[in-house]
Design a protein around this nucleic acid. Sequence first.
DNA 1: GGATGTGAATGTCTTCACAGCT
DNA 2: AGCTGTGAAGACATTCACATCC
Lengths: 206, 206
Amino acid sequence: MRKIAESTVRRLSLYLRFLEEFEAEGVETVSSEALAHRGGTTAAQVRKDLSFFGSFGKRGLGYSVPELTQALRDILGLGRRYEIVVVGAGKIGSALAQFRGFAERGFHVEWVYDSDPAKIGADWNGMTVRDVRELDADLASAPADIAILVTPADVAQPIADRLVRAGIKAILNFAPVQLAVPEDVAVKNVSMALELETLSYALRNR
Amino acid sequence: MRKIAESTVRRLSLYLRFLEEFEAEGVETVSSEALAHRGGTTAAQVRKDLSFFGSFGKRGLGYSVPELTQALRDILGLGRRYEIVVVGAGKIGSALAQFRGFAERGFHVEWVYDSDPAKIGADWNGMTVRDVRELDADLASAPADIAILVTPADVAQPIADRLVRAGIKAILNFAPVQLAVPEDVAVKNVSMALELETLSYALRNR
DNA sequence: GGATGTGAATGTCTTCACAGCT
DNA sequence: AGCTGTGAAGACATTCACATCC
């Protein structure tokens, strides 16, 4: 399949959220125009984004909400359950591990790790914080799909190496480090400070 | 000034982080090549990004680390202190309000708001959670620069309206809603679920 | 009639390649 | 000689506009 732009994938993800809202409202059919309006983009953009993956609408009518919802779930790979490990049990790791929005979308946090003896053994909503030394053995017996890395900068790379060796193919990285990983491993960097800096830039002349 | 692409601004923010690392390591001069290598981009990209704002290097030599650091801080508007309000004292709001990485970069969380009586009055590292009903009055007497919105979806828009009326010009929005705001207000949406979905998409055929 | 799906046109971003300065 | 700064070329993304089908 042709390579798809990241911006397109992000929009598909957004469309899916809107479709779920429409579904909850009992709407059965939407036009590209309606989807675009809710998402702050254009109707042509919506149709183009979808066209990379097939044709899901009916001319003259629009898109069936349940059908397009299902199609987008398939495209995004959301038809299954994902096992997540969180490495780093600080404030952000803790918040993410317990975030309800994940489970709703099939992302299940099974394990949380830390190296701090004060945190190991702590119970969070039925999840137990484990010693990071167990990480490799745990992953060997129960593989995970995605790792969320929320460690200090200096240990992020060595942990990433261990995750990769354990077969993890996707990492959501909160550590302020550019991780080096094999090219078949997907890394998504998230930085709150960087987001604030884009806002600070936007504020320059106001 | 010409309009600058968001992707450029994000990279400048990254370069700044790397420059601070170089500075800590005692490096005095860097080439575009060195910066690019650490940031996973190309030397030409680094030079082009900088060229929108001026010329900061010396041909044949590279860039002075302290000078370029300062230039980037100025460009990004980081030469000042920013006052932040956090609305929503859930797990994520709490983690963000106490995140040390913010203060290091001049972003100071002064106030945290919630509507839950069980949370109001709680003390977090010297920060007190206040009743969200006080929000408007507080902002009238002590304006803030940036708001971080971490509320449930259904109250996000009304809160955003109040923030806008109080003069806030930048919002970091964690609520899964497309906010409607006047065009002189900058909004940056952050969605952990969406980030995971781009990873899930990347995992499709692996 | 009405809304999709899609080539073609336009616009934006990235990469190239080299002149110009140190 | 070495590395920047930058037009020009190329790649990529968005928008337009219309033929196509329900």
